[in-house]
Design a protein around this nucleic acid. Sequence first.
DNA 1: TCTGATAAGTAGATTCGCTACATGTTGCCT
DNA 2: AGGCAACATGTAGCGAATCTACTTATCAGA
Lengths: 108, 108
Amino acid sequence: MKADALRGHLDPMILAVVEQEPLHGYAIMEALLERSGGELDLPTGTLYPALRRLERAGYLASEWSTVGGRKRRTYQLTAAGTKMLASGKQEWLTFRAVVEGVLRPGQA
Amino acid sequence: MKADALRGHLDPMILAVVEQEPLHGYAIMEALLERSGGELDLPTGTLYPALRRLERAGYLASEWSTVGGRKRRTYQLTAAGTKMLASGKQEWLTFRAVVEGVLRPGQA
DNA sequence: TCTGATAAGTAGATTCGCTACATGTTGCCT
DNA sequence: AGGCAACATGTAGCGAATCTACTTATCAGA
């Protein structure tokens, strides 16, 4: 999968994996990897800046903790993040309709 | 629809609209607009550079003509472009599966 | 002891869609 | 006659987000 296919779609995906329960960065990476069937293996240089961006934007809130001698920053959805996720899901459906309307992926 | 959602997805869409018949730039814009149900209204500063990029990459070939006193550059798929389109469609399916696996857009 | 997994981060490059601008023709409306 | 919308193509430069490559540190197991 090409790198910039992800552009603009990563944010809602990150929000989606912390929807059920708060997770720390590394766990978010693993969750994305698992939910995508092994396709979405984000480099840390993508994920960590993205998390900070989402926090700065007010969609995530973070908290430090230490588990087994390792420091974790755990992220959870804010109210704004919940709204953002909902609208992100909606925008995905629109986007999908646009691409498929143009691409007609059924046709060989 | 956000601007950079399009990133990496525009190329196969452009190739798709010239699949059936060669079209000139302006007609490609209109075809995209129509097939997307009015959602995909590309600025010329996006489309024309994209067409040149696709030609430089060998996926499109162009030819000048004059119709009704107006100059047109008509683009058609090359053999490489046809292959690229096919793999682009395939990649779209993978991408869609990844996003939907993570997003679960069915869930509110 | 050394490697791999866990954990978080930054710096800098690249890419591409965008805004804004530039140019010219045709045809319709007033 | 004049003006404006639609037709038609293009460039320059900006900005944002993902990437590669690197850094730091702990812990478990071979």
